[in-house]
Amino acid sequence: MNLKALNKSLWAFHFNSGSCNGCDIEIIAALTPRYDVERFGIKLVGTPRHADILLLTGPVAMDMKEKLERVYAQMPSPKAVMLIGNCGNSGDVFYESYSLVGPADRIIPVDVYVPGCPPRPEAIIHGVVKVWQKLEKEAKK
């Protein structure tokens, strides 16, 4: 994998596949002044084509499956996926349903799992650091 493209700060694209909004507002909270990851240059971008990491929330609803695959395909390589929240990891309270197709790692490969319902902003930032470490490790190989 050519990781030269990642020698600057990571840019993230946020994709909500049917979450309750809890994780999503915590992602924004991580960006805003209290936690402020933007000081490290990490920011949310408006299109997957500019993104290095995909921040994925939610248990993946039927209609979002195809959109999720499309968004993932649009991201340039090298890329990483961070799955935020319990429901994308295991289904959580929605584990049994007629219109959900998760868990998300059956649809696209996931690099870092951040459990929690919702995880605190600190946990999300910790997840970003883990992504970074993982990518660095791979770059050294």
Binding site: G18, C20, A61, M64, C87, F94, E96, S97, S99, C117
Partner: peptide, 26 residues
Amino acid sequence: VHRSIEWIGTRRNPVQVVFLAEKICG
């Protein structure tokens, strides 16, 4: 993003549904 929460709710007892209801909206 239809999650079929109402249907899931009809398969749990009321005490369990309280936790499900929490997850309708964060």
